[in-house]
Nucleic acid binder design. Sequence first.
DNA 1: TGAGACGAGTGGGTCCGCAA
DNA 2: TTGCGGACCCACTCGTCTCA
Length: 726
Amino acid sequence: MPSDSSTELEKFCKDHGVHEVLYQALALKGLESVDDFAYAFPEIRSLEALLSGLSDSDLSDMGSTDQFHGVQAARIRKALRLAHDLCQQPIEPPQQIGQPPSLPAAILPQASPASWVENLPPKLSQEAAQELIDDFKTNYPGELLDEDTMPSIRPLSLVQHSLKPGEKIRWIPWQFRLSSTQYTEIMEAESSKPMRTEAQLLASALYDDTPEMPVAHLQQEKFDPPQVLLLDTSGPLGVRCQALADPEAAHKRVKVHDTEQGLLLFAFNGTLWKYVVCHFGAKFSAYWWQRVGGLITRILHASLAHYPHRAWLYVDDLLAALLRSSAHESLLIVVLILSSLGAPISWKKASVGDSLIWCGWKVNFAYETVELCAAKRLKLSSQIQGLLSKQKVPRKDLEACIGLLMWATNISLVLRPYLAPLYRLLNSPPGANYSIAPRMWPLFLHCLDSRAVFVREAMGLSIPLNSRVIEWGNRQVHCKSDLPLMAKPTGHTWIRISDPSCPVIKMTRAAQTSLAWLTPRIAAIPTTPLSLPPILSSLARADAMAEGDQVGIGGWVSTKHGLAWFAEAYTMEEIRTFWPFLTKDAQKYIACFETLAQLALAMTAKAHHGHTRLSLCLPTESDNTPTEGGVNKLFTTAWPLSEFLSLIASWSSANGVTIQVSHVAGAHNEWADDLSRGRLQAFAHRSRDRFRVSLEMLASASAKASWSSKDPAEVSPIPETPRLEA
DNA sequence: TGAGACGAGTGGGTCCGCAA
DNA sequence: TTGCGGACCCACTCGTCTCA
């Protein structure tokens, strides 16, 4: 190092008008030469940190009030550029070899200094863009500025960014030279184009305007307490239909065209009769009713165009939500329109109020909620009690109960996983033992198809059709090839047959436990909001790895405010502490672990997003299709996946977070894949953003969930899902 | 590294239940 | 009858593992 190097930087600064205060700041960092200066500040913008550290007294000494845009700031920037030129040093910072790129580095497109391509700056906010427009209109009042002449947000952001100190414009890519109208058209046309890399996806989400639903509007723009009108609008008059007088039979009001009445014949007492209306049961009745009902609904919508309203039609039951302030006018219009159309109103069924029953649901528009009506609760409780009171129950009763449970749990998906044991019982009919004589064995085999199902009847074999062989001796039978071609030479061979049409089903312990657990919950199914929860503006992905005895889960969630991630590795021994039924190789349960990863991702997002008590929908992505389908429906009859879905259902219920999974190809899920396999380098510099997920946390997701009820005394924790036989 | 096997789902057909 | 949702079966996709 030359001895006069300190003089070199000092002289350089003086020659180029850099203030003594700024030179001293450089000297304090130990910089002695022009080379030191150039390499210590590889970019013009890196001077910002130095300038921001200036105190008020420093600024006063320099006679400057603006530390970033004053003349002294300009001179040191100019000096730095000259220093770069003298040193022939690239402006770009040196690339770190062997280090994975940091997340921001991976997200931001990079351009070499020699490139004509600009780094893509963040888009301007709407407020900033509007400010520029206002300035333009003030300064150039005679110029026309509309959607066709207004530059799109991209060049606007690029130019505005280039005006910042230390920035310059090199080239505006031709694809950015668009008007606002052209930009909108292209964005809409490309809205469904998939992103190629996670970096592109993140850059788009974090630096562009991600569509989001503000939560505040739920309070601010709440539909005012409405009046609700429920009308039975039986009997519309369509183009080819004629209304009849019977208000109870909607389908019989639609008249069949003369040329088609010959299709509806029936004989009674030796006389041939024809239907002249669309009677209940005819395949086309509902078809026409839907169209006539839809026409009437649209006419009502058009007639109420000036009054905010919502309306739903189910066959012949119309439900409408009207604003309380204009309810009288709206009601009058509805009644007049229906009367003028010749659609008689069933006044017995009509009702007005905040709360009413519609299609078995109790809808409350004052609070915008829906709940199961009391009659349905009673019917369901009665059916469950009927099944619980007997060891053997009619198949029809079980089917009816399951059907009603599926319908009732539409508004409470958290209960769905607990129906899995019932479906398992319904579709696993008990076996009955039959003995086959040695000489009948070939005939017995002949009656079976490849799945070991009886598809032919034969004399001497009283085995019901469609029943399936499930055991031979003590061995499980899965297909015909599992049975021997020759029977044992002496004595009968015992086989076990499962008959799916068996009218009586023996209740299993798992089904009884499930029903007993459901009984009080059915009675206390909470009210559910009519509106869907707002979607959190975020990107979130998770993945799982299962190899031999090792299991790994990992994932990340990113919002405009930051990023959080998790990565955990467990052994099967640790996992069996909580789920002892997972006895096989870890890979056999990959869908279960992918589901656990989604639960961990939701927990991470919840912890990262703060302490909101509002219900939210968290959009996540997974490369596992079973998990995708299962988490979205919160139901599968496949075991043991149903066990893990019940964890998500319970956790979602307790935390107000609905998970909405969409698919991402494994090739595009690299970061989550790395995390699940313990490759944490890309996230190493974000150790503070890591969220730890223990198996205890995941396994206790359902235990910590509680069930809301009108009576606080009925509040009880949700226990673990009733165990199923493996 | 790529082909093939395997296991977990999917959607489409059928049946059944629920609602009107 | 329509819609919805389960079940089953089938062919298919996707991800992972194994092996040459």
